[in-house]
Amino acid sequence: MMAGFILIAVAAFFFPGVILRTKSIASGRKGPAIFQPWKDIAVLLRKGSVFSDTTSLIFRIAPSVTLATITGAMLLLPFAEQKAVLSFEGDFILFAYLLALGKFFTIIAALDTGSSFEGMGASREALFSMLVEPAFFILIATFAMFTGYTSFSVIFNHFFITGNDYVLIYSIIGAYLLVQIAMVENSRLPVDDPKTHLELTMIHEVMILDYSGFDKALIHVGTYLKFALYGSLIYNLVVPAGWNVILQTGLFFAVQALFAMVIGFTESFRARNKMNKNPKFILTLTSIALIAFMVILILTEKLA
């Protein structure tokens, strides 16, 4: 039962390091070691904290709330033929809304500092994550329509045994879409650039400017876990659940590594979108989700 949860936690240890390595190799640098991001977290945990006078309780509890929502969401994802810790009809609704709860707190915590930089980041993050919501739900609705089930565990178990060979088409569109949604949700390129040095061009980074020490460590842990969370979702979509468990475990890490490398390469060879192009970019994801929906309509022979 706990396999999905533990594997995501383990993958989160390698994930940020793989992204960093990919980026450094792509740009011809030597780069940091794989575990450097976690060493940074250890450093943060040893440090004290500075809080702004303006902030209130909200600013202090927000990172803990966000991390709690992400661990909650991790409990909902299955691995191979094993069901998730919590598996019920409509668990994906809880998944999406839990992550939204975390985002809600991140946004209000940014507004809590009274800084115009952070207000700006909060406004952008709120807008972009609002726009990406329909894409995820249309994607899941298409799964539900195709398999006839409404729970992550059961959907993924039945996805490949429907006997329909064209399912691979859908699997690929779905995986592509999930990668893009994960990029938006985790504030990475092309929507947001975590390495930009100017507050005015940041989205997520500017929201957490005032954090330090323990709370900042929690935020980073949350981000890494969220990456692995989406990686696990993608893995479930592309690897049939019936295969051998050892092979599955290997493939799980392979998919996670591939996902991290995709992020690394994207960030090496692509520039961030102009800020006012972002809504268009995100809404395109919704239209791709609608195309996936059409594909399924054809596959299930509703649309001849």
């Binding site: 945990l45 004290g48 904290s49 500075v50 702004s52 006078d53 803990s64 020490g213 323990f214 929690l218």
Partner: peptide
């Protein structure tokens, strides 16, 4: 998490300052 946070902060320096 919040309880542990409280324990952690009690063992480290906590300061206040202006917003960045």
């Amino acid at each position: 998490l919040l309880l542990y946070r409280r324990y952690h902060l009690s063992r480290h320096v906590v300061e206040t300052g202006p917003t960045w």
